[in-house]
């Protein structure tokens, strides 16, 4: 009897799992001509496949738990005055798009992709180009930003935005992105328990990576090259910095790594090469510097006022 019951339950599960996950095709000669029309027809669990072409229907609000996949790198054109995708649902996957022309505004931060949702259990993006702000995550939790190419176009230097911008976020993975030509490559403000791995951040106006008021984050295996300064960690606690390369951050106010008012950090097995100042630290306490390599810098480390209980180890 109990075996019969479990069999029936098994069938129910199978029938449920096959009933979701329809594929909706968007493009010329496809059932849906626009992304909006496919989104309106989709239900949670569906996949919308967008075929190559240029789509001018920004902003695209994604308010259902769906997967949006670009085939042949379709282009979403924001026509210089709108945002690209705005994700407002849990469990959204977005991949394979090129986003263009998000434009610049003093009033609002226009992003290629904006995520505003408290629990994104799976949020992925891939491969795209944009202007001004790239990916803007506000109040997002548990997401992945992976394998994106983000090319900013500095519009008069002070006016460029950040490439990947986190504001009040937690548990976000940022992996394998190539980031060029923004204000800050990756910007964290009130972002906790996030992991930043294997990214290349170069040629940014200000910092390759910037922490403000962000605690318990880790960054590892990244390259920061030719930025105003490589990485700035400010007003933050318990940041772990492992196996990164800080390279060619050269100029009047340029540092490989700038530490200001931080506490209980670990800086281990990084390489600092050809920076005006490898590490500049001020007002930073209880920092462990372990097995870092300093090659051809103007200064390896400059320690300014208010630094207590820091340890430098070399094994």
């Amino acid at each position: 009897m109990s075996r019969g019951l479990s069999l029936i339950l098994f069938f129910f599960l199978v029938s449920i799992s096959t009933s979701v996950g329809n594929k909706l095709h968007v493009g010329q000669d496809k059932p849906y001509a626009t992304i909006h029309s496919a989104l309106a027809a989709a239900t949670a669990g569906d996949q919308i496949i967008v075929h190559s072409g240029v789509y001018r229907e920004c902003p695209v609000h994604i308010n259902k738990s769906i997967t949006l996949t670009g085939y042949g790198m379709p282009v979403l054109d924001a026509e210089g005055e709108k945002e690209g995708f705005i994700i407002e649902a849990d469990s959204v996957t977005l991949e394979g798009f090129e986003i263009r022309n998000t434009g610049f505004s003093y009033i609002e931060d226009r992003a290629g992709i904006r995520v505003k949702r408290k629990h994104i259990s799976s949020f992925r993006t891939t491969d795209y180009i944009t202007l001004f702000f790239g990916i803007y995550l506000e109040h997002a939790k548990s997401g992945i930003v992976r394998n994106n190419a983000l090319h900013g176009k500095p519009l008069g230097e002070a006016n460029s935005g950040n490439s990947i911008h986190l504001w009040y976020c937690a548990d976000i993975d940022i992996e394998g992105n190539l980031i060029r030509g923004h204000r800050d490559g990756i910007y964290f403000e009130f972002a906790t328990e996030c992991r930043i791995r294997q990214n290349i951040s170069e040629g940014n106006l200000r910092y390759g990576l910037h922490f403000m008021f962000s605690n318990d984050d880790i960054y590892t295996g990244n390259t920061f090259r030719d930025n105003g300064a490589g990485v700035a960690v400010m007003f933050s606690r318990r940041i772990h910095m492992l196996n990164n390369l800080f390279h060619l951050n050269w100029g009047q106010a340029a540092y490989g790594l700038l530490l200001k008012e931080i506490y209980d950090a670990e800086i281990r097995e990084n390489i600092f090469q050809k920076n005006t100042i490898g590490i500049f630290t001020e007002g930073s306490n209880r920092i462990n510097y372990v097995d870092n390599d300093f090659l051809n810098n103007g200064w390896a480390v400059k320690v300014a006022g208010g630094c207590e209980k820091n340890k430098f180890h070399w094994k």
């Binding site: 003093y106 230097e157 002070a158 006016n159 204000r183 106006l205 200000r206 910092y207 105003g228 300064a229 700035a232 400010m234 009047q252 106010a253 700038l258 200001k260 500049f280 001020e282």
Partner: peptide
């Protein structure tokens, strides 16, 4: 000089004109 001058208090490069 936006993008060049550093903040006298926090050392950050000044970029925000607002």
């Amino acid at each position: 000089r936006y993008g060049e001058d550093a903040c006298n208090y926090c050392k950050m490069t000044i970029v925000d004109q607002q």
